[in-house]
């Protein structure tokens, strides 16, 4: 088992002929992902690396039975691409695009509530279930199959931590990058719920950031309803107040949104909170009884 994507995933790539879309489609194919279709308006009828290209998502779903999509469409058109895939009935939509206007995402997020679908991202690295499906831009070589679920607001920090886990021979069930924007499709809690329900996931790692209060809300859920052990790490202990730290969502704007305050709230909820990426791997080993 894994969450969100697995052997049953039939993937569609929106923006398959763009620079990033093409490069990462190649890598997803190399990982053994079942990429069944691509969409680039105006390029229908062509193919890329043997993957048929369609003009619209609806047509692609109709002809190939795609059930998930990954979006590499530029920011001005990305919200439209998300609406298109949700309308076409895809159950998992993963938007990699960085820089989508916040107002566009508010509309998407509220529309999403009316659909039985999961949107991961935007501004995220995607979802990867090792040796099952790679719907992401994550470097697959650092992953190894196993029982740790990883959920993160940050892309590269996820790689760093997965790498530390793999070096300790701790494998992963699924890694999910939920994205670093102020408005995202899926929050920590929804992913943690899926890990809790997944019999294969024995420990969950939550990687947060400064800004907002998503980590505190997740801590309440973990304390109240989760039996799977959780290890967390909040980056940005040294972040100054009022400065946006790379992610639009990462800004210390009040006492509650500092890494210190968040880590404290997590510890109070019984979550093991690390102070750097290496410590995360140590705490996971401990939680799994391998310390």
């Amino acid at each position: 088992m894994a969450i969100l994507v697995d052997e049953g995933t039939r993937l569609l790539v929106q923006g398959i002929t763009g620079r990033e879309g093409a490069f990462h489609t190649g890598r997803m194919l190399e990982s053994g992902t079942n990429v069944v279709a691509g969409v680039t308006p105006g390029k229908g009828g062509q193919d890329y690396e043997g993957v048929p290209i369609f003009n619209t998502v609806e047509e692609a779903v109709d002809k190939t039975g795609a059930n998930a999509s990954v979006i590499f469409v530029p920011p001005p058109f990305a919200a439209d691409a998300i609406f298109e895939s949700l309308e076409a009935g895809l159950s998992t939509v993963c938007c990699i695009t960085e820089g989508i206007p916040v107002h566009d995402m508010m509309r998407v997020a509220n529309y999403l509530k009316t659909k039985d679908a999961t949107l991961i991202g935007p501004n995220c690295p995607g979802v990867l279930s090792p040796e099952k499906a790679n719907v992401s831009i994550m470097p697959r070589d650092i992953f190894t199959p196993g029982n740790v679920g990883v959920v993160s607001r940050s892309g590269t920090l996820t790689y760093q931590i997965v790498n530390e886990l793999t070096q300790r021979e701790i494998g992963q069930s699924t890694a999910v990058g939920i994205g670093g924007d102020p408005i995202i499709g899926t929050d920590f809690i929804e992913i943690l719920k899926k890990f809790e329900a997944d019999p294969e996931t024995e420990c969950a790692v939550m990687i947060g950031e400064i800004g907002g209060n998503a980590e505190q809300l997740a801590a309440e859920y973990v304390q109240g309803e989760m039996s799977t052990p959780v290890v967390a790490y909040i980056a940005g202990f040294t972040a100054p107040e009022g400065k946006t730290m790379g992610h639009a969502g990462a800004i210390v704007s009040g006492g509650e949104s500092t890494a210190e305050a968040k880590s404290e709230a997590l510890r109070e909820a019984g979550i093991r909170a690390a102070t750097n990426p290496s410590e995360v791997a140590e705490l996971v080993a401990e939680a799994l009884g391998q310390g």
Binding site: G155, T156, L157, Y159, I207, Y233, A235, G236, T238, G246
Partner: peptide
């Protein structure tokens, strides 16, 4: 990446 950079500052 924002997360890795923040983490680098911490380390």
């Amino acid at each position: 990446g924002a997360g890795l950079v923040m983490s680098t500052l911490d380390v």
